[in-house]
Design a protein around this nucleic acid. Structure first.
Lengths: 146, 146
DNA sequence: CTTTACTACTTAACATGTTTAGTAAATTGT
DNA sequence: ACAATTTACTAAACATGTTAAGTAGTAAAG
């Protein structure tokens, strides 16, 4: 067809462009995670918890871009595996407060070097200025009301 | 914790930033797709096929960011639903050549307006220049060797 | 020409994504 | 105080994501 009649070229469509760019960045991270028996989602959860401390599940869902039903299942196994701990909220008993355990934090520490190395490889090829520029634009896009 | 000791803030980590930005853009598109009984993946496949004509499955997988096992299943139902057609490759019989049907193309046409409206809403808030800049940076990131 | 390796896919199994429905606790309206 | 609504989560069902293994067709090596 090659007509570009109905829509923009997919390479200039934001959703696909964002997805493809993400696949590029995630490929080596997925390799790292496979070595430590962790999924991409669990890695995101650990990072959010390390950054935010003890938070309720809805917050994790928002920050890590997961839906609550997925999170329910994932946290169940992460608790069993000792990477996170959960307790019922004290004032609001509907809430489940979650925090990272020492074991979970250790996983982050052990893989920090690899994670940084991947970031540096990308930065070396694109330049820090462009990466910063990209991150600024992405933050701005996130804030758009749709 | 709020220490940012182990890693970058997640908002400045490329994988999460890309994911969050994508969620923002996809939210209204998902609403549109729900109305026409189409998943995000099937929509991507239709757009790639409309753009590229008749291609083999591996090409679709690459362009639409899907793994072949997922694609096998999805194309099976799309063929049943009359949105795409498949035939065995003539010279290389391992290949399966796929193309969009008139019915599939009609789905694209019927939703073009909505799709454009969503893009315009985003553009109105961010400005065309920034969007173009973002798309350029995303294309560049995709091309990085990791 | 035959063995070997590789390519393009398919199948199967399990994790996650996504929607709908349900439950219990908190909040609101009267 | 009490019914109605909302919030935070869980359960279930089905689609897709992901990995490993299998199949058939093709290309390469000897």
């Amino acid at each position: 067809m090659n007509r570009q009649s109905h829509t923009t070229r997919t390479s200039r469509a934001l959703p696909i462009a964002l997805l493809r760019a993400r696949e590029t960045v995630m490929a080596p991270i997925r390799d790292m995670l496979q070595g430590i028996q962790l999924t991409e989602q669990k890695w995101r959860i650990l990072r959010v918890l390390d950054e935010m401390g003890e938070v309720e599940q809805s917050t994790i869902a928002n920050e890590a871009c997961l839906l609550l039903p997925s999170l329910t299942r994932i946290l169940r196994t992460m608790e069993t595996d000792g990477q996170i701990s959960r307790r019922q909220g004290s004032t609001d008993k509907r809430r489940t407060m979650v925090k990272i355990t020492d074991e979970g934090r250790q996983i982050l520490e052990e893989n920090l070097a690899t994670s940084l190395a991947i970031h540096n490889t990308i930065e070396a090829q694109m330049g820090q200025e462009k990466i910063d520029n990209l991150l600024d634009l992405l933050e701005e896009l996130q804030a758009v009301k749709v």
